[in-house]
Computed example of a mutant assay.
Amino acid sequence: MTTRARPPQSPLRVACIQMAPEIGQKKANLEKSLSLIERAAKEGASLIVLPELCNTGYVFDSRTEAFELAEAIPDGESCQAWIGLAQQFRVTIVAGIAEREGPSLYNAAVLTGPEGYIGTYRKNHLWGEEKLFFEPGNVGVPVWSLPFGRVAVAICYDQWFPEIYRLAALQGADIVCTPTNWVPMPGQPEGQLAMANILAMAGAHSNGLFIAAADRVGTERGQPFLGQSLIVNPTGWIAAGPASDSEEQIISADIDLADARRARSLNTFNDLMRDRRGDLYGDMRL
C-alpha cells in the first residue's frame, strides 16, 4: 500500500499596515495608504489589512463632518483607488472606511481583490461617540470564499464580543481581518500586552482562526491610539508583532490558512466546534 504525500501548501503572506491618518485629510490619508499598500505588495504580501477609518481619521466632531468625509461603497474615490491597486498588484485589500448609504452612515470595511470589489462589512458594535454618528452594522458576519481561503472581517470593538469570532468560525472562516483604532483601556499594567492584543490571541485560540489586526498610531483631537498591530496564529500565539506603539509600520507573516482548520482539533478527543454545547447555550437571548 502506498501513502499519498500531502501536497505542499503555498504560504500566504498577510500584511498589516499600521499608519497615522489625520482627521479630515482624506486625500493625504488615501495617498499614504496607497503608498503603503504598494510597499507591502512589493514585499510579497497577498492579503493586506489597513486600519479602521484609515482614509478619514476617527475623532469626528459632528455627524455632519463624518457624513461629508464618508463615501459610497464601492463607487467612492477611496474604494476605486484601492480597487485599482488590488487589480494592479493582484492582491486582496481590507480597508476601514466611513460608508455613506443614502442618509445612513456606517463604520465599515471594504474588501477588494484582483477581480475588483468583493464585499462590505459594517461594524456591529459601536464604541463611544461612534454611536452619535454611525448606524450599527446590519450585514451580520459574512464570510467570503476567495481563491486562497475563507475570509471574515471584524472592526475594533467587535472583538470584545466573542460571538463575532465564533460566528466567523462556525461559517468556516480561516482568517478574520480586523481593521482597528484601539485606544488605551483603564488599568493597563506597565510592560504587559495590551488588552486588545490579549483578546485577539484568545479569539484566535478559542476558535481556531488566524487574526490579522491592523491598528493606527498617533493622537487625534486629544485621543491617543495604541498601535501594536499583530497577526495571530490559530493556536493563539503571535505570528508577527505586536508592532510599535507609536510608529507607522508594516508587519507581515507567511501563513498556511489550512492550519486554521487543523487547529480546531486540539487533540484526539477535543474539537473546538464539535465540543460546543448548543443544548446549554440556546440562542443566549437572556
Rank of each mutant, 00 (worst) to 15 (best):
A213C: 07
L34A: 08
A214S: 10
E52P: 00
S10D: 12
P162T: 05
T2D: 15
L69P: 04
L170M: 15
R285C: 12
E38L: 04
D174T: 06
V153A: 01
R285W: 12
P8L: 13
A260E: 12
E101F: 13
I164W: 03
V153L: 09
L170T: 08
P162K: 01
G113S: 01
A72D: 15
A214T: 03
M185F: 14
G128M: 09
N207R: 09
A204I: 08
N29H: 02
G140A: 05
P184V: 00
P114F: 07
R166I: 05
R100P: 06
M185S: 10
N138G: 06
R276S: 03
P224I: 04
N138Q: 11
A86I: 09
G203F: 06
I73R: 03
L36D: 00
A196L: 00
S252M: 12
S252A: 15
L272Q: 02
E220Y: 04
S62V: 01
A154N: 09
Y117T: 00
I97F: 06
A86W: 08
Y157A: 14
P242M: 03
E248I: 11
I231K: 01
G96F: 02
I164T: 13
E43H: 10
R261M: 11
L126V: 01
L193W: 08
A15M: 08
A154K: 00
P179L: 02
G191A: 03
Y106N: 05
A86Y: 05
L69F: 13
P189C: 05
P51N: 04
A240C: 02
L69M: 14
S10L: 15
R216V: 13
L69A: 08
Q171L: 08
E130F: 08
G236A: 03
G84Q: 08
I211H: 06
R277L: 15
S229Q: 09
A70H: 10
P136W: 02
Y106T: 03
